Simulated scan of single mutants.
Amino acid sequence: MSISGSFTLLIRSDRLNLDDITNSIGLKPTGSKSKGESISKALNQNMRDNLWQYQVKYDESDNPNNVLDEFLSLLTTKSEFIQKASKEYEVYLTWFLQSDYAQIGVVLEPDVLKKLADLKLQFELHILSWGGVED
Results as ranks from 00 to 15, higher is better:
residue 2 S to Y: 00
residue 2 S to A: 02
residue 5 G to V: 02
residue 6 S to L: 08
residue 6 S to F: 04
residue 9 L to W: 04
residue 10 L to N: 12
residue 11 I to V: 10
residue 14 D to R: 11
residue 14 D to I: 07
residue 15 R to Q: 15
residue 19 D to Q: 12
residue 20 D to E: 15
residue 21 I to R: 02
residue 22 T to A: 14
residue 23 N to K: 15
residue 25 I to T: 14
residue 26 G to K: 13
residue 27 L to W: 15
residue 27 L to H: 15
residue 28 K to Y: 13
residue 28 K to P: 06
residue 28 K to M: 13
residue 30 T to K: 12
residue 32 S to Y: 11
residue 37 E to G: 15
residue 37 E to Y: 11
residue 38 S to Q: 13
residue 39 I to F: 15
residue 41 K to S: 15
residue 42 A to E: 09
residue 47 M to G: 10
residue 49 D to M: 08
residue 52 W to K: 05
residue 53 Q to G: 11
residue 60 E to P: 01
residue 60 E to Q: 10
residue 61 S to A: 14
residue 62 D to N: 15
residue 62 D to Y: 13
residue 69 D to H: 12
residue 70 E to H: 07
residue 72 L to H: 00
residue 74 L to Y: 06
residue 74 L to E: 10
residue 75 L to K: 02
residue 75 L to H: 03
residue 75 L to N: 05
residue 77 T to Q: 06
residue 80 E to M: 02
residue 80 E to K: 08
residue 81 F to G: 01
residue 82 I to R: 00
residue 84 K to I: 07
residue 88 E to M: 06
residue 93 L to T: 03
residue 93 L to G: 02
residue 95 W to T: 00
residue 95 W to Q: 04
residue 98 Q to M: 10
residue 99 S to E: 06
residue 100 D to M: 11
residue 100 D to R: 09
residue 100 D to F: 10
residue 100 D to S: 13
residue 103 Q to G: 12
residue 103 Q to T: 13
residue 104 I to P: 00
residue 105 G to S: 11
residue 106 V to R: 05
residue 106 V to C: 07
residue 111 D to I: 05
residue 114 K to P: 01
residue 114 K to E: 10
residue 114 K to I: 08
residue 116 L to Q: 02
residue 118 D to I: 03
residue 118 D to P: 01
residue 119 L to D: 01
residue 120 K to W: 04
residue 122 Q to G: 02
residue 122 Q to P: 00
residue 124 E to H: 11
residue 127 I to F: 05
residue 127 I to E: 02
residue 128 L to G: 07
residue 131 G to V: 04
residue 131 G to H: 06
residue 132 G to L: 07
residue 135 D to N: 07
